[in-house]
Design a binder for these strands. Sequence first.
DNA 1: ATTATATTTTTACGCGCGTATATATTTTGA
DNA 2: TCAAAATATATACGCGCGTAAAAATATAAT
Lengths: 343, 343
Amino acid sequence: MSDFKIKNMDDFASVSGISRPTISKYFNDADSVRKSTRERIEKALERYDYQPNFYAMNQNRRLTKNVGIVIPYMADPHFAEIARNVENHVIEAGYRPVVLGSQGNPEQEIENLNNLRLLKPAGVLLAPIGRMSDARRIADFCKDVPTVLFDANIEDVGEAFIGMNNNQSIGLIVEYLCRTGEPPAFFEMLTPSNPNALKRRNAYVNSMERLGHTPHLIQVEGEGWDFEEIGFREGSRVIADRMLSTDTVLCSNDRLAIGFLSAAYQHGLRVGLGPSCALRVAGHDDHPFSRYTCPTLTTVSQDYAAISARSAETLFTLIDTEQRASSREVTLYDGKLVMRGSA
Amino acid sequence: MSDFKIKNMDDFASVSGISRPTISKYFNDADSVRKSTRERIEKALERYDYQPNFYAMNQNRRLTKNVGIVIPYMADPHFAEIARNVENHVIEAGYRPVVLGSQGNPEQEIENLNNLRLLKPAGVLLAPIGRMSDARRIADFCKDVPTVLFDANIEDVGEAFIGMNNNQSIGLIVEYLCRTGEPPAFFEMLTPSNPNALKRRNAYVNSMERLGHTPHLIQVEGEGWDFEEIGFREGSRVIADRMLSTDTVLCSNDRLAIGFLSAAYQHGLRVGLGPSCALRVAGHDDHPFSRYTCPTLTTVSQDYAAISARSAETLFTLIDTEQRASSREVTLYDGKLVMRGSA
DNA sequence: ATTATATTTTTACGCGCGTATATATTTTGA
DNA sequence: TCAAAATATATACGCGCGTAAAAATATAAT
């Protein structure tokens, strides 16, 4: 590697002995130049440490290879894992992922989309915050940029939605819990920010009624994204006030369940299956931490792999055909029961 | 808000009746224009939805208000919390934060710095991955951009380092554990990627010897960033093989401790303080999850607030004085003992 | 070898904005 | 009221790169 400092494409064109437009063409698509030219460029690339300015590149390009990935919350391991998964698909398909987290803030979500717009992305994979999302402005964005929604749906927004079948997954675990013990109560936030939570609530009620049981909703107060804290605080209250009419609790998601488990432990309630246990607790999502709780958490796993693969594929098809989907396609994947120690 | 679509600064200059250079000046520093002009611009801003293209803005600016924040791992709630903290300071100081995660990958870390360079940042706050970091290239970066290191130190790299005093914090908890029960064994990874881990190991050995005890290091295999998994797997092995010569285990960090706690639970070992307990487990960092483990985790808290505040302040001073620090300043903050249920 | 075709080079302009300079206009101070 | 100081405008060029069109060159086909 030479020590001559190359600061832009002109410099690199000079030292490589190739014209700048051809260099530009190469970086856009390495196979669009003659093989011998390509080799000359790549030989120069080995000697000189140059890579085009990403932002200047996108400034005047009709269409880039950028794909935006927007998730509701970076610090949530659940979303972090999904993002990583999606990111890999994007890279494999030869696109460049740009991952942004909205920190549970709808304004940040819109700003993320605005920032992405400046990068002229070929498409965007968006997991919306949910109920609080600014649906109108997201819809505006989708008019300009091919966008596939995943994880959380917003009606009629985006070209497609890929998520999980909450009806099936909740049905699955409710059925399991009823079959192996007392019918579960449903522990959830009263006003959840995530639309999946509402679907799960309904699915729980339906499943219980179908099985001939009376649904019992435990709806607790709480705002924001600190679900463990809410699960712990409200779980403690529920246990202390003896508000449980059953020994089985199904939590709307694993993070609530993690907090609830901690509350149960604090109150000396042994959680698990055996006759020595006072309580069964189940979650939903198969959160990365759910295998390290005490006891380990019985839950329903989301098919991360399928959801992220299908989301990415759908977007790439959209990009390749260069036309908007005639009808908005909704794909829901079934969950799988993950039996662990807590229920 | 008018529906006329403003697509660039020229458009906005037209509709606001102000020349583009003045508009540009305003966006760079709102107070650099006459008050009456400023009001006219802001009135126009209310009517028309315009904001300058962030990337084009940075392209030809001598110095921007951007501040890069780079952390080792986005999905780790510990770093996510630090990042959020630092970010707030940056915003308060009137700078624009750009947060990037390196996903534990040294190449990604360098790429993050390269990307930041294109944004012409006023400065960068960098929490390096650690041992695996490409120290040479990071040092190169620091030559061009004022950079303050935090959380993990790299010798002589960056203008300053702000972190925690591992000597003090480990000393604190070792002393506490020895005072209230058997002296602890130290559970850690054999080849940790984080330099703090090495400091903690030494601090443990020193503390033990100072108190007249024989140090007992349990060094387990494991690569990567899945600390809970390592803590669980190796913790299980250690317990099953009866490799513990004491009933007290101090883990090098909370994430390992979380895995270890889970292993202990699985093996039917009751963790905690009372006479009915078979094991005491302590961690280090006060990870956001450590208050929800079963039992809750006794640990040493990092002074997040102080570390992030000082890191930001140090960088801003550096930026304002426009000169490099004459000597590299290292500031270490003491940890606080957080007594919970596990030890 | 000659023609047809594919690729590269030259030249020029565009993206959205920063910034410098000369000039025009306001505001301020006495 | 009038000159001095402060601020705004017009104009022009730069950042690093995309892209279009015509001219020049290399490769393929006959």
